[in-house]
Design a protein around this nucleic acid. Structure first.
Lengths: 369, 369
DNA sequence: CCACGCGGGTAAAATGTTTTACCACTCCTA
DNA sequence: TAGGAGTGGTAAAACATTTTACCCGCGTGG
C-alpha cells in the first residue's frame, strides 16, 4: 500500500483516458483535446493531488527548466545591492517562464574543474547567467563565438564574442557630463571604476570625457582617478583629486558608493558636498536617496538588467527548438532568435538598458569665477 | 550521425560490459567490481567524454540532489552580509556533498500558491533551507511537527516544532554582559532587535538582561529600546536612550549595524564612541573591524551557520534511506538521524553555533563615579 | 461511392539512470 | 562430496514523462 505518489498513469486510469491524453492536457499547447475530456482530466488530477515530476519531465527533451546564476567568488559576493537587485530581476523573469534558478559560485576550483561545463553537460541547467564578469575571467574564452547558452550580465568584451545585456553606460556618461556642463561646471574631477578590467567602466569614463570635450571642457589625465567601486576607495580617490586640484567644483564618481566616499573626504577637509562641491554618483542605490545630502546620480535599473538578461537567454534557449536531436528541423541553433544588436565591432550586444538622471541635493550650479 | 551525447549504454557497449557494471563504477560505493574492469570502464568514459545526466540519475530514487534556499522577499534581500555569508556557507557544504542549490524568493504569491510545497512534491529539491524566517511566516505551521525536509536557518520558534540551526544567542548575551560588568559598567543601555518577531533576538536580550541582573545590575525597562537591525534605527534608538539617560557609560546593540548607528548618534551629541561611551555590537560583520573606532563585538560565524544548516539537513535527508518506498526497512523516517538537542520546551534545536567575544577599541573601563 | 482531411484520441518508443534479483564460478569446510 | 560463502558480474524492472506515428469514424467534395 502506502501509494507513494500519484503519477501520470494513475491520473489516466482514474479518468479512463490514455496517458498521452493526460500529458497533452498538461502541456496545454496542444488543442487536440476536447473541452469535456480536458475537464475530466483536470478533475482527476485534482482528486489525486497530482503534481508532475520535474525530473521526469526534463528527461525526454533534456531540459532542466533551470538556469544557473554564476557569481564570482568575491569575499562577500552577495553582500551587495548590485548582485541583489540583479538576482531579484533574474528570479522574477525566470519564475514568469516557469524556470528555476540555481546558484553557483565560481571559485578557483570551480573554474579549474570546468564545472560550468558540467552544469550544461549533465543537464542540470539550460543556460548560464554570469554576473560580475571581468576581463580576468579568461575561461570565458571557451564560450567565445560559440553557441553555448551563456550570457554575461552587465558587462561585455572586446576580445570575446559573447551574449550580454548591459546598462547604457555611454548614455550615463553623457547625461552626467551634460548636466555638469549645463550647470556651468568646468573644473571637474572624475572617479572612475576599474577600467582595466571592466569594459562598462571604460565606456562610462570615455563617454563622460568625450562629451565634456565636445563642449570645450578638456579633462586632464590627472583629473581622473580610479577606484574599485568601494566606499573607501571613493574617499581616497577624492582625497587625491582635491589635493591635486583644490579648486574643483564638481566630481563625478562611477558609482554611488564611491560618491558617498567622496562625501567623507570633502567633509574631512571642511567642504560641504552639494554646496561647496557638486558630487554626482551612478547607479542610484537605495542609500543614495537617504544620504545627506541626497545624492544626484544616474539611475541604472539593475533589476531590469537581471530580468532582461533572463528573458533574453530564455528566448535564445527556447528558439533552439523543443528538442535538438540533430535532425536539423527548423532553425538549427545559430542564433536565429532575438533582436541581436551589434556593437561597433560587430559583436553581439543583446540589449542596452536605458538610464536616467536623478537630480537631488548633492549638485548645483558652479560658483562664478 | 550527430551522436547526440554518450549515455551509460554507450559506455557499456564501448568496453564490453553491462550497463549495470558501468552504473556500479559510477557510484563507487560498490566494491564488487574488479580493479581491471573498473579501469576499463573509466577509460571508456574518458574516451566518450561521458557525463551522467543528473536528471536521469535523480529519477529512480526521486532525488534531485538539490536543496532550495528560501529567502523572504525583503526589499533587497541579498543586499546584506548576513544573507551573503549564510548562503556562501550553505553553498560550500552543499558542493562538498555534490548537491546544488536552488534560489527561491518567498513573495506573497509564492506563499499563497504554496510553491514551497510544489518544490518538494515535484522533486525539484530534496529539502528547503529557510533564511530570515520570523514569526510572521505563519505558513510554517504547515511543517509543524512534520517530517518534511525543512530547516530554519538562524532562528527557531516556540509555537512550531521545526528543525533549525542557530547561533548561540544566549551565550552572546552573556558574553557581552560579563564583559561590561568586568569593566565596571553599571549604567548600561541596550538596543534590542525585533524581539516581537524573532526569537533569537529575545534570547539575546533576555540573556543579556539576566546576566546583568544575576550580578546586581538591573536594567530598567526604559534602558532597552528596540530596532529592526538597520543602521538608522540604531541611531534613533541611541538618541532615545541618551536623551532618557544622559549618563549611560555603555551601550550594547543587538547587531553591528545598529551599533554603528549608535556611533553617529553619539558623535552628533559630541560624545566619542569608545572613549566617552562604550559601544558593543553583535555579529562581527566586516565593517565592524574597519569602523572608527573598530567595534568591540560578539562574533557570530554566519558562514558556519549556513554550512552547518546544510550539513544537517543533508544528514537528515540521507538518513531517510536511499529510497523510502514504504517498506520501512531500517530507520523509517522520523528523525533517527543527527544529534538533536532539545530546547527547554522539548523542541528540536539541531545545533548551536558557538560565538566569541572580539574586543576592539570601542569599549573600555567605565569611568569612576 | 471514393478519396481525403480532420477531430479526438491512443500505443509505443525514447529519455538515462538506479536497483533488485539472480547467475555462474571458485574456494573452503565439515 | 554436498553445502555454503564469497566474487564478479548481468538482465530486467522501475522511475515519470514527452513525442511520434498511427488509428478510427465522420462528414464532404468530386
Amino acid at each position: 500500500m502506502a501509494k507513494t505518489r500519484a503519477n501520470i498513469r494513475d491520473v489516466a486510469r482514474e479518468c479512463g483516458v490514455s496517458l498521452t491524453t493526460v500529458s497533452l492536457v498538461l502541456n496545454k499547447n496542444d488543442h487536440r483535446i476536447s473541452e469535456a475530456t480536458r475537464q475530466r482530466v483536470l478533475d482527476a488530477m485534482e482528486r489525486l493531488a497530482y503534481t508532475p515530476s520535474r525530473l521526469a519531465r526534463g528527461l525526454p527533451n533534456r531540459r532542466a527548466n533551470t538556469l544557473a546564476v554564476l557569481v564570482p567568488a568575491l569575499q562577500h559576493a552577495f553582500a551587495d545591492v548590485y548582485f541583489g537587485e540583479i538576482i531579484s530581476g533574474i528570479y522574477e523573469a525566470a519564475a514568469d517562464s516557469g524556470y528555476r534558478i540555481l546558484l553557483e559560485v565560481a571559485r578557483r576550483e570551480y573554474i579549474r574543474r570546468k564545472e560550468y561545463m558540467t552544469l550544461l553537460e549533465d543537464c542540470s541547467v539550460d543556460g548560464i547567467l554570469f554576473i560580475g564578469a571581468t576581463e580576468e575571467h579568461k575561461w570565458l574564452s571557451e564560450f567565445d563565438g560559440s553557441d553555448l547558452p551563456l550570457l554575461i550580465v552587465n558587462n561585455h568584451f572586446e576580445q570575446w564574442d559573447l551574449d550580454c545585456v548591459v546598462c547604457d553606460y555611454p548614455a550615463a556618461g553623457k547625461l552626467a557630463a551634460e548636466y555638469l556642463l549645463d550647470n556651468g561646471h568646468k573644473r571637474i574631477g572624475h572617479i572612475s571604476g576599474p577600467s582595466d578590467m571592466v569594459r562598462t567602466s571604460r565606456e562610462l569614463t570615455d563617454s563622460f570625457v568625450d562629451t565634456l570635450a565636445s563642449r570645450g571642457v578638456h579633462l586632464a589625465a590627472d583629473m581622473i582617478v580610479g577606484g574599485q567601486y568601494l566606499v573607501e576607495m571613493g574617499k581616497l580617490a577624492c582625497d587625491e583629486l582635491m589635493s591635486r586640484h583644490p579648486k574643483l567644483t564638481a566630481i563625478f564618481a562611477a558609482n554611488d558608493k564611491m560618491a558617498l566616499g567622496a562625501y567623507q573626504s570633502l567633509r574631512a577637509r571642511g567642504l560641504q558636498p552639494g554646496k561647496d562641491v557638486t558630487v554626482m554618483g551612478c547607479d542610484d542605490i537605495p542609500t543614495a536617496a537617504l544620504a545627506d545630502p541626497p545624492l544626484t546620480t544616474v539611475r541604472m535599473n539593475f533589476f531590469e538588467v537581471g530580468a532582461e538578461s533572463c528573458r533574453h537567454i530564455l528566448k535564445s534557449i527556447e528558439s533552439r527548438g523543443p528538442k535538438t536531436n540533430g535532425n536539423g528541423h527548423g532553425t538549427n541553433g545559430v542564433h536565429a532568435a532575438a533582436e541581436v544588436l551589434s556593437g561597433p565591432d560587430g559583436h553581439r550586444i543583446s540589449q542596452r538598458i536605458p538610464v536616467s538622471l536623478v537630480v537631488r541635493q548633492s549638485s548645483g550650479k558652479a560658483p562664478k569665477g
